[in-house]
Design a protein around this nucleic acid. Structure first.
Length: 849
RNA sequence: GGGCGUUUAGCUCAGUUGGUUAGAGCAUCUGCCUUACAAGCAGAGGGUCUGGAGUUCGAGUCUCUAAACGCCCACCA
């Protein structure tokens, strides 16, 4: 058995381990076993790029769950995969081709898709390497891609069934148009940003009259599509105009003045221009009044032939020129500056254009209503951690409307619809016969990822995998994609399989920079998690990511904390070295003849195990981590190992060291798999070849010794007070100590290295009393009392007096004694007695000199 | 406009069902190369928990209210 290296070197420790784990098939699920299943599907990262810190956080949390559950005896399946990310990837590939001077449309669909597959392969390989560096326990035998054959089958199945059921339809509606990517977008893909705009007040003259209406608009360039002007029917100001025509400026065309509920008397001038082809509200108005729909924009965002002389201009240029022309013609009444929110494309960043288009939609109401119904049932609902995020989903379900799923892109699942003149065929395969042309469009990338929890398990076929691992037990994702993904998986799972897709959803936040800003390219504040791994190791990064914040909250990145995590690992490493060199040759762990300190550390350990499991089960890894940290550093290293140094020849000491360290390694394994496996491999006694296949520690009641725990706690308390007094008084090593209590003060003598300094009689030197609950001693030392000493003692007395007074008052309060739990009251009584004793001694002490 | 979150030590964060004198890491100060660890050890200082009101024997924790910051959703002709 090779010894542990003198220095903890994360690079050496982590190097090669992942490959070994893969070779040993340690990450594979055990389909055939009778163990209870625990399944997580990995939120598939987009193949657009490589993994960032947010991904590292996301997968670390999942890996901790999976590794924990494996040790807890579950058959775990953590299913990896990637997302083709239709629009995002397409944008990247378009750019790559453009840089080479190639135009997507000239290149052609087939070759373009080849380029997309190349891109996917390249980035997929990088991502897999990154997963390996992070050490995550993915079952690669089940890896999937959102654009693979299986997903394609599932997608087509859903599309066809929904179409036949009337849940998917094709229709002309106002959709969000991305003029850069030249595709429709869903509501969720539009981000509203505040921009500096203006209210343009335009003069719509009454036909054959000098009178006019003041029409305010933020989008003057859409006036070419105006087909009416609306006022509220109760608006007395404009009643006389209703039924008449106004002349559309520039176009010089009469359009009617109508009444419609959409016109709000309170807003603006109370007159609203109606552009049915470019505004969702106006579209509805147009439907109510059978107004013509005039599209004025081309797909690339330039003005079309309906814009007359402005044809070919960009939206922005047209607005500028138009406003100038209106002003010249005296048709511009006023420009009122206005800050307002305008929709931008999530992917390309350009302003989104509401446009009327023929697209495919999912009818959302019935699907969403069903989820709302299910969420009322505690046994059937999706449980969010933290629970507040349930509201985010429910609210979305309440207000969502039909989902535009067709995209005018090439990279994605092609819509399984074929057209022949006026006929439409929707089916799993192309229809027989000539003349059928398939829909050119593909589906929203989220349409396929919404099927991820079950399509990856073989749905729509009724596979064993599906039967065993659906519903998934858990999903881990950021709150920012609840609308895009979690919600959609939920309604699809409910509809298609009649069950929630996952029992729990663990939500985490976003990682921000040290100043709380989002990471962004323009700020240049990005952190590459793999740089951090190079510097501190994956274990340190993982521990940091898992332990920094409570579930559901954002995290501010702080490299100092990774350093602190590294220090902790280094501490573990050194403690392990100490233990390993001292338990060489240990044959078996025997915990039958235990000393007080052994019983003490075992008790602390068993209590720690209980706490840690409680936190792990609630996904509170931050609390679990700090509980283990405290035990390892503050109890095991700071006290037990120090005391153990005096009895390293004893079996009980060796056994206890071995047993405790093994338990610590097990608890830390999910957080820091590399280093814990490395240390475990050197242990002389092992229950399994690998730590990760060991069982998780369970609290053993017989190793809880309350009496000994209290006694050693008290001894430690004494040691702490002793050291304090020693430090505050600048005592030399030559001090002498007289114990006033009969107890076995073995531990204290060792901890304080008092051997040879113990006296049986008081000495004629300055004396100082030290107390804990059970132990009392006098320190004698050579030193002249200074003014500072007196002040210090006086302060101590004051603090004690105040505390005693507070407690006496509290205990004199009948209400408190009557209503508070007895335990609490009893504790106060004890504490009071102690304090009184201490005060008495302290006061008496003044006479000793 | 609707909803949600945050506000605790100099900084970053914990704080379970209300219950001893509110914790950690980092930073600061003091003393130590004590043979696992100086990336360490020992000791210390530092917060009344954003403000106000209430419920309670008891509030960082529950209720109401105000403020600052942040996020989500919707709308703005």
């Amino acid at each position: 058995m090779k010894e542990l290296d003198k220095k903890y070197n994360h690079e050496e420790v982590e190097n090669g381990k992942y490959e070994t784990w893969l070779k040993k098939n340690l990450f594979k699920c055990e389909e055939e076993s009778s163990k209870k299943p625990f399944c997580i599907v990995l939120p598939p990262p987009n193949v657009t790029g490589v993994l960032h810190l947010g991904h590292a956080w996301n997968v670390t949390l999942q890996d901790i769950i999976i590794r924990y559950k494996k040790m807890e005896g579950y058959d775990c399946l953590w299913l990896p995969g990637m997302d083709h990310a239709a629009i995002a990837t397409e944008a990247k590939v378009v750019k790559r081709l453009k840089d080479k001077g190639i135009n997507k449309y000239e290149y052609g669909r087939e070759k373009f898709l080849e380029a997309c597959w190349d891109w996917t392969k390249e980035h997929g390989d990088i991502i897999r390497e990154q997963w390996a560096k992070l050490g995550i326990a993915l079952d690669y035998s089940k890896e999937r891609f959102t654009l693979d054959e299986g997903l394609s089958k599932a997608v087509r199945k859903v599309f066809v069934d929904y179409y036949n059921e009337g849940l998917i339809y094709r229709g002309e509606k106002i959709i969000n148009w991305d003029p850069e990517a030249k595709t429709a977008l869903s509501n969720e893909e539009v981000i509203y940003k505040e921009v500096e705009g203006a209210f343009y007040h335009l003069k719509y003259k009454l036909e054959d009259s000098d009178e006019y209406l003041d029409v305010a608009t933020t989008r003057p360039e859409t006036l070419f599509g105006d087909t009416a002007v609306a006022v509220n029917e109760n608006d007395k100001r404009y009643q006389k105009f209703v039924g008449k025509n106004v002349i559309l400026p520039i176009v010089n065309k009469p359009i009617p003045v109508i009444t419609d509920e959409h016109a709000d008397m309170e807003k603006g001038t109370g007159v609203v221009k109606i552009t049915p082809a470019h505004d969702p509200n106006d579209f509805e108005v147009g439907n109510r009044h059978q107004l013509e729909r005039i599209v004025v924009l081309n797909d690339d965002g330039t003005m079309n032939e309906n814009a007359g002389i402005y044809q070919g201009m960009s939206r922005e240029a047209c607005r500028e020129k138009l406003v100038k022309d209106l002003e010249e013609q005296g048709l511009l009444l006023q420009i009122e500056p206005l800050k307002h929110e305008v929709g931008h494309s999530e992917r390309t960043g350009v302003m989104v254009e509401p446009m009327i288009k023929k697209q495919w939609f999912v009818r959302m109401r019935p699907l969403a209503d069903h989820v709302l119904e299910v969420q009322k049932d505690k046994k059937k609902k999706v449980n969010f951690v933290p629970s507040r995020y349930e509201k985010t989903m429910n609210h979305w379900m309440e207000i969502t409307y039909d989902w535009c799923i067709s995209r005018q892109l090439w990279w994605g699942h092609r819509i399984p619809a074929w057209y022949k003149e006026d006929e439409v065929y929707v089916g799993m395969e192309a229809p027989k016969g000539d003349g059928w042309v398939q829909d050119e469009d593909v589906l929203d990338t989220w349409f396929s990822s919404a099927l991820w929890p079950f399509a990856t398990l073989g749905w729509p076929d009724n596979t064993k995998l599906l039967e065993k691992y659906y519903p998934n037990q858990c999903l881990v994702t950021g709150y920012d994609i609840i609308p895009f993904w979690v919600n959609r998986m939920t309604f699809q799972g409910e509809k298609l399989l009649g069950q929630r897709p996952f029992e729990d959803v663990l939500i985490h936040g976003l990682i921000r920079d040290k100043l709380g800003r989002k990471f962004s390219k323009s700020l240049g504040n990005g952190i590459d998690p793999f740089d951090m791994i190079d510097s501190y190791g994956a274990d340190a990064l993982r521990y940091y990511l898992a332990s920094d914040v409570a579930p559901g909250t954002d995290m501010r990145f702080d490299e100092e904390k990774i350093k602190a995590a590294w220090n902790f690992i280094n501490k573990l490493w050194n403690a392990s070295r100490f233990v390993l060199t001292n338990i060489q040759g240990l044959q078996k762990i025997s915990l039958d003849y235990l000393k007080n300190e052994d019983k003490w550390i075992l008790t602390k350990l068993e209590k720690t195990i209980h706490e840690v499991k409680k936190f792990m089960d609630k996904y509170q890894f931050n609390n679990a981590a700090s509980t283990i940290y405290e035990f390892t550093w503050n109890y095991f290293c700071d006290y037990y190992i120090e005391i153990a140094k005096y009895s390293l020849d004893q079996e009980s000491t060796k056994s206890t060291l071995c047993y405790v360290l093994t338990s610590v390694l097990k608890m830390l394994q999910p957080f820091m798999p590399f280093v814990t496996e490395e240390i475990y491999s050197h242990m002389p006694i092992k229950e399994e070849a690998c730590l990760m296949t060991c069982s998780y520690p369970k609290q053993v009641k017989k190793y809880i010794f309350e009496k000994e725990e209290e006694a050693v706690d008290d001894a430690i308390e004494f040691v702490r007070r002793f050291r304090n007094i020693k430090a505050e008084n600048n005592m030399s090593k030559e001090l002498k100590v007289m114990f006033d209590t009969e107890d076995d003060n073995n531990i204290i003598v060792k901890m304080l290295k008092l051997d040879g300094n113990i006296v049986k009689q008081p000495l004629g030197m300055k004396a100082y009393k030290v107390f804990s609950k059970y132990i009392k001693a006098t320190i004698f030392f050579e030193r002249v009392e200074t003014e500072a000493d007196k002040v210090l003692k006086e302060n101590q007395i004051q603090v004690l007096k105040a505390s005693i007074e507070r407690r006496e008052k509290l205990l004199a309060n009948e209400n408190y004694v009557k209503k508070a739990p007895e335990k609490i009251v009893e504790l106060d009584r004890q504490k009071l007695a102690e304090e009184k004793k201490k005060l008495e001694e302290l006061l008496k002490d003044e006479s000793i000199d």
